[in-house]
């Protein structure tokens, strides 16, 4: 088991390294290759050549790519100093550099966005897991009945309808028409938990609806398969009650594939739910990324990309470990 864990962790670290290398390469090497000068992006074209040269020196744009990448990695892990002679700026770890547009440090910008995205993704995840799994299980157990068909039709709708449609529709109904909920505005949890909650209800439900639908269908399919397994028949043949047969024997293996999908979905969402954040005006990572792309602000795009990659790799790692914990065949192999 230990070797299994260590191997997974090493795999994850290597994956992250590769991701940083590739993204760094794309975002910094390409402007250089195409002749556009990143230094210009910081201070504008009108500046005098000495100032541009100063920036270039300070940011190290003249170094070979691998040196730049090494410094970038060091910045991520240990922080780095940007120096041009006596002009030294310290950027603490994890350092993603400075925004082209505002010259601000990228890291604090992103740190501000993370709680928003985290609140949105985790809350929605709880909701869709509960809804998706319970509807999926009920559908599987009541296969072919009205309940099954109703749940699966709703699920189909959920999968097909885009967030900007369901999001806007629910806003129209619950905010403007019925007036039950406030118009979305993110309130930090520590500031006012109640407001945090109320303001996030609609984004959660909207996002969860999309995922719950997929999860209900997936759970139903997995449960149906598991219910046909020999070991479920054995469980019944032992005289176990239907509650134990379903709740312990069938569910345990029926939900295993959900773990994989859930890890990936959550990981991806933590990198920013662009559509939902935009529809509900939540300033999370996805929103930030969108802004950065519009302004061609490479350091921020790079930062968001790496954070997203980190979450996905991390979620994958957790999935692998959970899998090993659930399934002894994986653990003991």
């Amino acid at each position: 088991m230990l070797a299994y864990i260590v191997r997974r962790v090493i795999n994850a670290i290597i994956t992250l390294l590769v991701v940083t290398a590739v993204t760094f390469g794309i975002f910094f090497a390409i402007p250089k290759a195409t002749g556009s000068d990143p230094a210009l992006l910081y201070i504008g074209k009108q500046s005098d050549p000495a100032a541009i040269e100063g920036i270039r020196q300070k940011m190290g744009f003249d170094d070979p790519i691998y040196v730049q990448y090494g410094k970038f990695l060091k910045g991520l892990v240990a922080g780095r100093d940007y120096a041009n002679g006596p002009d030294v700026t310290h950027c603490p770890a994890p350092c993603f550099g400075y925004s082209f547009a505002t010259d601000q440090e990228v890291t604090p910008l992103l740190l501000e966005d993370i709680p928003v995205t985290l609140s949105l993704a985790l809350g929605a995840a709880v909701l869709w897991l509960v809804m998706g799994i319970s509807f999926g299980v009920i559908s599987a157990l009541r296969r072919g009945t009205f309940i099954d068909r109703a749940a699966m039709t709703t699920a189909l709708a959920g999968v097909s309808l885009p967030v900007y449609f369901t999001g806007l529709l629910s806003t129209a109904i619950f905010v403007y028409w019925l007036g039950w909920l406030p118009q979305g505005q993110y309130v930090p949890f520590l500031e006012n938990p109640a407001d945090w909650f109320v303001n996030l209800i609609l984004p959660w439900v909207t996002l969860a609806f999309l995922f719950a639908a997929t999860y209900a269908r997936l759970t139903r399919a997995n449960m149906l398969e598991t219910l046909g397994e020999d070991y479920v028949r054995t469980a019944r043949a032992k005289g176990l009650t239907e509650r134990v047969v379903i709740g312990k024997h069938a569910l345990r293996s029926g939900l295993t594939p959900i773990v994989t999908v859930f890890g990936l979905d959550l990981g991806a969402l933590l990198g920013g739910a662009v559509l939902t954040e935009t529809v509900f005006n939540l300033r999370g990572l996805g929103y930030q990324a969108l802004q950065a792309i519009r302004q061609n602000d490479l350091p921020i795009i790079l930062g968001v990309t790496l954070i997203a990659a980190f979450f996905i790799v991390f979620a994958n790692l957790i999935v692998d470990l959970v899998y090993g914990w659930i399934d002894p065949r994986v653990r003991l192999a």
Binding site: D230, Y231, A237, K238
Partner: peptide, 21 residues
């Protein structure tokens, strides 16, 4: 209540008939 008590069953493929977890 009778199942597994007064009457019990052995199946063909014991690998798939036992829960893997």
């Amino acid at each position: 209540k009778l199942r597994g008590g007064k009457m019990a069953m052995i199946f063909q493929d014991p690998l798939s008939a036992m829960h893997p977890y």
